[in-house]
Write a protein that binds this DNA or RNA. Structure first.
Length: 875
RNA sequence: GGGCGGAUAGCUCAGCGGUAGAGCACCUGCCUUACAAGCAGGGGGUCACAGGUUCGAACCCUGUUUCGCCCA
């Protein structure tokens, strides 16, 4: 068999994805007798480029999906993309700008067409990148949030919510981005701590007998003040409530009101009330029937109501208003303050809270069942701690502003006539449902998350009761980052329950954020991200995948570094070379997969089978519990340590003997199963090697997941090999001790304390010799042997191993070595003995622990005896 | 202000009631025909601190320090 000594992932990975796809392996079996397993992929933005966060999430999902597919479950992983309204519109805007065009002059229809064109051209990019990762998604079910079917679902949901009275349209304070020129929902605002100026401004009482001082970080909004508020119980202002003040600069008369919202301990205890530009002030305005005067417009400039300041930007206005207040002698104090300022998530512009006409969803009625679903464990979070975050948000939920003043998205199916009637309809209408007059459709589109919230069922065909919907809904797992629990997870659960009666998934699996080596979030401006495709080019998708999973735990952030990816590629190479070894030896041995349970007697074979069994158990459990790191670690350790470093090395002995056939069979059988265990993590290299191993065995993708053998007792063999390992390690240690070069064979003697130990050693005698590179390894009972003087010794479990020396033993050095070994052993003995002397321990600790401690004590005492004997001999 | 998470070997992180682990880095020796992307051997940790629970705590509880995140 001709195989390069180095694994070349590029060559291998390219061919398999296409073959899998063509063979239809990505599609569900639709076998109704098997359990179903379904994941709908969190749809990346069509504008998106794959980053490590996607890679991590996709790897997790692919591991789960491949695991379940191998278990022969009816498995579906449904892919798709999200139209990402604001983001995509901004991208195309920029594109147009570069061409010297602009959206407003070309008009809505032409613009939307432009976006579709752009989507057709670049929208598949991120999906192609996922294919490179090996994502085994069912491409025949690919969805896009603006697809006809999904759009129908969006309209249906809008209409039904409206009919149920859960939608309303009104003038409320919204988070307005003056740069994106649209309203945003609360959670699309990012609060950042900033240093601001807290200015204290004096408002003169109209009675002429004093002033009231208010504090603000936004002096320009005073132009829109319609009241001053104090706490009703604040003794400082008792007499003033009900009086009027004159608003500086504008001269408007505004009342002093009392409202419990005011915090009497903050600032002067009196606050200016600007209902049109502050959410809390808006609510106070409602309670006290105040006017809301909008002094800042949608473009971020002062309106006509701002008097002489009209036309200035809000930033300019702040400076001017402050100057004028100072000139008028109204400023009573200024100091720096750290406060949270809202910024647009998309463009980082400071958010303007603004009174505007928008559509809202009443969230309270939707939230209740969603809270209950998690409380009753119908939906479970992994890790569970994220439940709290979810609950906390839902319990304090605010209504959701869903209209967006952009063009790219689902247009709101609401129509208005001149008489002010609203018609909400599933199909476009031209006449008002109430008065028959001509109507115009709402210009706005819906928040992208409004459609994403329907994703788990809209992608499966809802509102039609399709076969897919019946089969795969509710889905099994939703895997995503903890940063979008509010944006997406909670809303999906709410909508899912409301419209289908069932929570959309059983488990919410949350991964951490991927960070750079310094622990910073990845960002374009820092340039500290890495393109997963570059990693794949350098090390292969398998290396990337295993590196993302090894040593990571659900919900914990992950720091990437080239070293981790490199380590992943080393493992891929190791796997490849182990199989290369098997394949090179197998030329003369045709392995029949049917022989899997052939009888085998050699202890080394029994031992590796037992280790493999343990690995299967651990991995299966870990995968069921979404502990990918633990599962990966189990197969990594098994493959590298047990299989490569011990089993293959020991098997080499028999490959040169008459037992060649038996060894080859175990080598092959174990490799076959180990590859299967590894396949969900490293699909490409395992498929490649699996085919080489069993050319007519079909794809590993659909091979059955290994089951542990039950009822096979191999305890003796396991102990024998473990004791041999202990002997070999000790012997190697002795070699290193005297600087015996690996090329030089050593002469070893091992003296067993009991016939049982001797028998075990004898069972693996030739293997031990080979691994020790010994020219001889005499095994006998201690009582049958003469004292070993020309040798150095090391005590092991059950006996002592000696390396014979030609010349004189360096007595001093050997005594020191033994002394140190004895000191360690005595420390250990004292520790164990004191535990066993503790009555409480004997009485309260589990029986097995006590027994084990007793055994360990016996063993360490034997070790000390051997060391004593050795020391006596060297006196 | 409320909540959550991290603090374990030089670095990055697993482990989360029964004698401290991995990868990388470091030291020593090896091209032992599967693999130098490797092999063998080795050094290195009062598991942030202080209490408590327990026969037994890195692991559970309480508090403290510190870094980070989320919400208000």
């Amino acid at each position: 068999m001709e195989l390069s000594p180095r694994y070349n992932p590029t060559e291998v990975e390219e061919k398999w994805y296409q073959r899998w796809k063509e063979a239809g392996y990505f599609q569900p079996s639709m076998d109704g007798t098997r359990p179903t397993f379904c994941i709908v992929m969190p749809p990346p933005n069509v504008t998106g480029v794959l980053h490590l966060g996607h890679a991590l999430n996709s790897t997790w999902q692919d591991i789960l999906v491949r695991f379940h597919r191998m278990r022969q479950d009816n498995t579906l992983w449904l892919p798709g993309t999200d139209h990402a309204g604001i983001h995509t519109q901004m991208k195309v805007d920029e594109l147009l700008r570069n061409r010297g065009q602009d959206r407003l002059s070309m008009g809505r229809q032409a613009f939307v067409q432009e976006v579709w064109q752009w989507k057709e051209q670049y929208g598949g990019h991120i999906l192609a990148q996922m294919a490179k990762l090996g994502a085994s998604v069912d491409w025949s079910r690919l969805r896009f949030t603006l697809d006809e079917g999904l759009s129908r679902a969006v309209t249906e949901v809008f209409v039904r919510l409206y009919e149920e009275g859960l939608l309303y349209r009104g003038n409320y304070i919204t988070n307005w981005c003056v740069s994106c020129h649209t309203a945003l929902s609360d959670i699309e605002v990012e609060h950042e701590e900033e240093t601001g100026q807290l200015t204290e401004i004096a408002y003169e009482l109209t009675s002429g007998v004093g002033e009231i001082v208010v504090a603000t970080t936004r002096p320009e909004t005073m132009l829109g003040d319609t009241a001053v508020a104090v706490h009703p119980d604040d003794p400082r202002y008792q007499g003033l409530v009900g009086q009027w003040v004159e608003l500086p600069l504008l001269g408007r008369r505004i009342p002093i009101i009392a409202d419990a919202y005011v915090d009497p301990t903050f600032g002067t205890g009196a606050v200016k009330v600007t209902p049109a530009h502050d959410p809390n002030d808006f609510e106070m305005g409602q309670r006290h029937h105040l006017d809301a005067i909008k002094v800042i417009g949608e473009d971020g400039r002062m309106t006509a109501d701002a008097g002489v300041y009209a036309g200035l930007t809000r930033e300019e206005a702040r400076v001017r208003v402050l100057q004028d207040l100072q000139a008028a002698g109204r400023v009573r104090g200024m100091r720096e303050i750290i406060h949270a300022v809202g910024h647009c998530e998309k463009c980082d512009t400071v958010i303007e809270p603004l009174l505007s006409l928008q559509w809202f969803v009443k969230m309270r009625p939707l939230a209740e069942p969603a809270i209950e679903a998690v409380r009753s464990n119908a939906v479970q979070f992994a890790p569970a701690r994220f439940e709290k975050i979810y609950m906390n948000w839902l319990e304090n939920i605010h209504d959701w502003c869903i209209s967006r003043q952009i063009w790219w998205g689902h247009r709101i199916p609401a129509y208005y006539c001149d008489a002010g009637h609203v018609t909400v309809a599933r199909e476009p209408v031209s006449q008002c449902a109430q008065c028959g007059r001509a109507v115009v459709q709402d210009e706005d589109v819906l928040d992208t998350w409004f459609s994403s919230a329907l994703w788990p069922f809209s992608t499966l065909g809802w509102p039609d009761m399709t076969d897919d919907l019946k089969t795969f809904y509710p889905t099994s797992v939703l895997s995503t980052g903890y940063d979008i629990i509010f944006f997406w997870v909670a809303r999906m659960i709410m909508q899912g329950i409301h419209f289908t009666g069932k929570a959309p998934f059983a488990t919410v699996l949350l991964h951490g954020l991927v960070r750079d080596a310094e622990g910073r979030k990845m960002s374009k401006s820092l340039g500290n991200g890495v393109d997963p495709l570059e990693v794949i080019d350098r090390y292969g998708a398998d290396a990337l995948r295993i590196a993302l999973v090894l040593g990571s735990a659900p919900g914990n952030d992950y720091r990437w570094s080239w070293e981790r990816f490199e380590a992943g590629s080393h493992f891929a190479n190791k796997v490849y070379n182990a199989l290369r070894f098997v394949l090179m030896n197998r030329d003369d041995h045709k392995w029949d997969p049917g022989e899997i349970n052939a009888a085998r007697s050699h202890p080394v074979d029994q031992w590796i089978d037992e280790r493999l069994n343990d690995t299967i158990v651990v991995m299966t459990r870990a995968l069921e519990e979404f502990e990918f790191g633990q599962a990966a670690r189990a197969i990594y350790d098994f493959f590298w340590d047990d299989y490569c470093d011990w089993y293959i090395e020991m098997a080499k002995v028999r490959l040169k003997s008459a037992e060649r056939h038996e060894a080859l069979e175990t080598l092959t059988r174990v490799a076959d199963r180990a590859l299967k265990l590894l396949h969900p993590f490293m699909p490409f290299v395992t498929e490649e090697l699996y085919h080489a191993l069993r050319p007519d065995g079909g794809s590993i993708m659909v091979a059955p997941w290994p089951e542990p053998e039950s009822g096979v007792v191999r305890r003796d063999a396991v102990i024998a090999v473990e004791q041999a390992q202990s002997l070999i390690r000790a012997g190697r240690n002795l070699r290193a001790e005297v600087g015996l070069a690996p090329g030089q064979a050593g002469s070893f003697v091992a003296l067993a304390d009991t016939p049982e130990v001797l028998a075990r050693w004898q069972a693996v005698h030739t293997e031990a010799m080979a691994l020790l590179r010994a020219q001889s390894l005499q095994l006998c009972l201690k009582e049958d042997a003469a004292p070993m003087t020309k040798a150095i010794a090391s005590v092991v479990v059950g006996g002592t191993v000696y390396l014979k020396l030609e010349g004189l033993v360096d007595l001093k050095r050997e005594r020191d070595r033994l002394e140190k070994a004895k000191a360690d052993a005595e420390k250990e003995r004292n520790r164990l003995a004191s535990r066993l002397h503790d009555e409480n321990f004997i009485r309260r600790a589990p029986h097995e622990v006590v027994t084990k401690t007793e055994e360990n004590l016996k063993e360490v005492e034997a070790r000390i005896r051997r060391l004593d004997e050795r020391q006596a001999l060297l006196q």
